[in-house]
Design a protein around this nucleic acid. Sequence first.
DNA 1: CACAATTATGACGTGGCGTCAATTTTTTAC
DNA 2: GTAAAAAATTGACGCCACGTCATAATTGTG
Lengths: 205, 205
Amino acid sequence: MSEAALAEPAGKRERTKLANRAAILAAARAVFAQMGYEAASVRDIIRRTELASGTFYNYFRSKEEVFEALADDGARRFKPVLRAARENAKSFTEYLKGAFHAYFSFIVEDNALEGRPIEERRPHVRVDTPEMIAVYQEVRQGLDAAIAKGMAPKVDADYLACACIGIAQEVGAAMLRRSPPDVTAAAAFAAGLVLKGLEGAPRKD
Amino acid sequence: MSEAALAEPAGKRERTKLANRAAILAAARAVFAQMGYEAASVRDIIRRTELASGTFYNYFRSKEEVFEALADDGARRFKPVLRAARENAKSFTEYLKGAFHAYFSFIVEDNALEGRPIEERRPHVRVDTPEMIAVYQEVRQGLDAAIAKGMAPKVDADYLACACIGIAQEVGAAMLRRSPPDVTAAAAFAAGLVLKGLEGAPRKD
DNA sequence: CACAATTATGACGTGGCGTCAATTTTTTAC
DNA sequence: GTAAAAAATTGACGCCACGTCATAATTGTG
């Protein structure tokens, strides 16, 4: 026949597997946004799909694992952006600014997807979500490289990476509370603070 | 009778009420530490006390509410410490160091219970309890005052307060992962970073 | 002491959890 | 193309936590 051989590369088995997984993830995203992560149940998620309850457990072991898969998804999209920011940067300063800018842009988009004004949404990202681990590893690597090249002082790289994550999280959340969120200003603040401390942070007049 | 009139100020009713509430909170603290926030159930908590399951609901509506009460409690104890650090400090530098040191000491004590890693002791979704907001305001006031007196540059005080909180949270968590946790070193790092950025952070040799 | 008010108790109905034997769907072998 | 094998789906099942509520116990009051 002619019309049967157009769907993607693989066999049917693999295709429906991917489709089911995607359906569950999409349903979970909607459910988490609508009723909140805590209140959501595996049943709430699976009910939003065509699948039976038992099928859920062929794909994920728990609600937590779905959340992590969603976060992984975010990290997978975000990490190359961060990596590019590092590779394109001509200095450590430029890298930091680019990294913060990338992160702030990312959370603005991530929060824009789900409808409803930004201010009404609860802050949601977990501390050790893969997104954050990606930030940690990138900043850590960038810093290690900068130190090796003598472009940055020999500080505690672990603490510094953690500090950057904390700044990104909290300043990012604060930025989202303002309307419209100014990504560039927030990035300038964060990078300036890290690079030169209070003296390096932009003045406010 | 003689021996009856020694227990605290109030009537029996109020006393057992406070005792029960305290017992639930203590049990919850232990349970969260031991098995992690997500895995813990209301039954796990109440089973650690002498009380019946229904009694739990005379005091809290849910596991989430217990967590918020614990967080509120922590913030209520911490806020005066922070205030004292501000009033005793002779310079902005000293204030920052004192504040970070106070916070790091606080969380070391607060996490003295053995059990699951710190990240698992809290909910995935961030909670902004009124008392947490109060801590933000205290930090914010300290920064505003410093800026008004010309002891700190005129930066975005909201962002700066958020950044300090983020640094405190993440560097604090990193500190707890090390053994033994070095409060003074962590405080020196955090304060140095905020005051002078990378150049101000302690060198690591 | 009697009575009212308050709090504690634990059994109960509801519903989610994760499992698993049975069934359906897809692949493989002939 | 068909039959057997492999894989995935299904939904009912037993279990347990949830939050409630009638009842019992305790405490305050006159």
